[in-house]
């Protein structure tokens, strides 16, 4: 059982929805980013998605593109992302951390070495956007074998024929991308997403979390109410990008979290 499994079991027992927050590792620099990360659980975040910056984030909109650019300009590397996780773990051994990004920086490091280091640093799950089920032998299967959850995205184009393949080697939770598009795109309406989530839940016992485009507490509540929780990324990254003080960033996170938790 990973920290992710434990967290969702706990939330379920409490009858609570999950609030998942995304930040870009090292945005705009390691210290600021680590301070934000450390503050997330206190602001109500149940699961942290930590972005690994990449020069060519093909699935991301401008907000997260710019965050990755800031992080890289600030000297962020894979080593430093892992250091950030280690530093976080010295004060928090419970909050699950999911690393999110693209395959090339992992491939460049070597999959086995990466998985060993990720596990040792305290990473619980991976979301790698450009690894569909067709490429499971690359990282998904080795990650599961190493005890790290591999969380897959399901999308509006994942039809009934394809869904079993998407769910097959997924663990931790299923991330339902509510719109066809890139991060930061317009939010989907809960009324439209509800049936899609229900369809996925018929085929899996894993929690289904919905993301993309959620940017208000109300939105977070509506979406969380038709799923097992929701993810907010760009709306938080935007605050960091605007150079807001830590307290303000965390207040915004707390507001979004309270939305999800009121569902």
């Amino acid at each position: 059982m990973t920290r992710i499994d434990a967290k969702f079991a706990k939330l379920k027992a409490e009858g609570k929805k999950a609030f998942v927050a995304y930040i870009m590792g090292g945005d705009p620099d390691l210290d600021t980013s680590l301070a934000v990360m450390k503050g997330l659980p206190g602001a109500g975040v149940d699961v942290i998605e930590l972005g690994m910056p990449f020069t060519d984030p093909m699935a991301d909109g401008p907000t997260i593109q710019l965050a990755g650019q800031r992080a890289l300009d600030g000297g962020m590397t894979m080593d430093k992302v892992l250091d950030m996780v280690r530093a976080f773990r010295t004060g928090d051994s419970e909050t699950p951390i999911v690393l999110m990004g693209y395959y090339n920086p992992i491939y460049a490091r070597g999959v086995d070495r990466f998985l060993a280091e990720a596990r040792e640093a305290g990473i619980d799950g991976l979301i790698v956007v450009d690894l569909p089920p067709e490429e499971d032998s690359e990282l998904c299967l080795p990650a599961q074998a190493a005890g790290i959850n591999f969380i897959r995205l399901a999308t509006p184009t994942t039809d009934a024929k394809r869904l079993p393949a998407v769910l097959k080697n997924t663990s931790g939770f299923v991330y339902y991308v509510s719109v066809t598009g890139i991060t930061g795109a317009a939010a989907a309406q809960a009324a439209a997403v509800g049936p899609e989530v229900a369809r996925i839940k018929q085929s899996t016992d894993l929690p289904v979390i919905v993301g993309f485009g959620i940017n208000t507490a109300e939105n977070a509540r509506d979406i969380a109410s038709i799923a097992d929780g929701c993810v907010v990324g760009s709306a938080i990254v935007k605050e960091i990008g605007a150079g807001k003080p830590l307290a303000e960033i965390l207040a915004r996170v707390a507001d979004l979290a309270s939305g999800a938790h009121s569902a």
Partner: peptide
């Protein structure tokens, strides 16, 4: 080679 794309594009 291969098919290193996001899930949204895979069916297409």
């Amino acid at each position: 080679g291969g098919r290193f794309v996001s899930e949204t594009l895979m069916p297409l």
